[in-house]
Design a protein around this nucleic acid. Sequence first.
DNA 1: TCCCATATCTAGCACCGCTAGGAAATGGAG
DNA 2: CTCCATTTCCTAGCGGTGCTAGATATGGGA
Lengths: 190, 190
Amino acid sequence: MSTHGRRERERAEREQAIITAARDLALAEGWDAVTTRRLAAEIEYSQPVLYSHFKGKDAIMAAVAVEGFAELATALVSARASAPDPRQAVADVAAAYVAFAQQRPAIYDAMFTLAVDLPFATQDVPTDLARGFAELAETVRPVAGDDDLETVTETFWAGLHGLVTLMRSGRLRRADHDRRLAVLVDRFSR
Amino acid sequence: MSTHGRRERERAEREQAIITAARDLALAEGWDAVTTRRLAAEIEYSQPVLYSHFKGKDAIMAAVAVEGFAELATALVSARASAPDPRQAVADVAAAYVAFAQQRPAIYDAMFTLAVDLPFATQDVPTDLARGFAELAETVRPVAGDDDLETVTETFWAGLHGLVTLMRSGRLRRADHDRRLAVLVDRFSR
DNA sequence: TCCCATATCTAGCACCGCTAGGAAATGGAG
DNA sequence: CTCCATTTCCTAGCGGTGCTAGATATGGGA
């Protein structure tokens, strides 16, 4: 029975290895390249092992998304913390959000585009997602005016999300990205 | 050689049948249900026939997206035309945009989420997309203020797109949809 | 009527996510 | 140390996908 602890620890490590492999592969070659066979080869186990950790490929993507929510929240917190004033905080947090999405497109996809309902079935995703959202709300609060804070925050968030996704799909001119971001920040912080 | 005209016409009809079948199937059961085999069965031809019309499944989706861009543009035009004043026009056009996306989610996906680069390889997509964008720009013009019109339009568009996509993926509370839309319109029309 | 080009289909490839069933490793009991 | 039960893991395979090569049917022109 003494080996039980080690076994469980090794199992947890392997589970993390799966998530990391999926994450890295998705970042490097996109989610299309993330197949269960390649994932299995990456962790040097056979395919069915994946299914003893996750219900399916979607669940693996969801796990990557969970890590992403935590990362994003942290990035937003640090952006707001180092801003000199509330007005600048809005711009800095917005920039941090967009930077996150641009630097980790595959993870951003897992969080918002793919794996639509799965992450919300688990318990910890709302936690990290809520952390990020709360940070956004606190950033927006000083400039929300008379409107309901949560509603304004959601709308501002949608603006960021729209800029990110439209630009990545080539619908917006890349050159004017900063100007669009400035317009969005301006419209939401006065 | 006299049958040549009929042949060509029949071929064009079959091509349209493929697009329509793909569109209807996607609307009814989602894009996952649109397989080349089912599509072939729907038009009562064998699978390879599809590839004599389109390069691949992506090209079929792109064709559906093209129709979607035309539809969307028309909806926006009519929304603006029947608005009593410029201020209301912004709200009405925004509502029309969101309504289009909500009523034809599969087509909206084909236009903006899936088939990322393909539509832009053809010639007519920019035309219909530009029509929609131009309509959006004319709507925004009276309330753009000192900012560059195109930049403001793109940003406003991103706001709409973000609201649509985030809400459909369950990230936003459904109940507050109208209030968010009102906030967005308000921030962009004063 | 025959020929040939075109149009179309059958059959199959390589890949996908996923799973059943058997082999191998492991840990406790005698 | 041996034996057995349990857990762990892999091999093999199922039904599906997008796509294509090669064979077959079709129909107009000589």
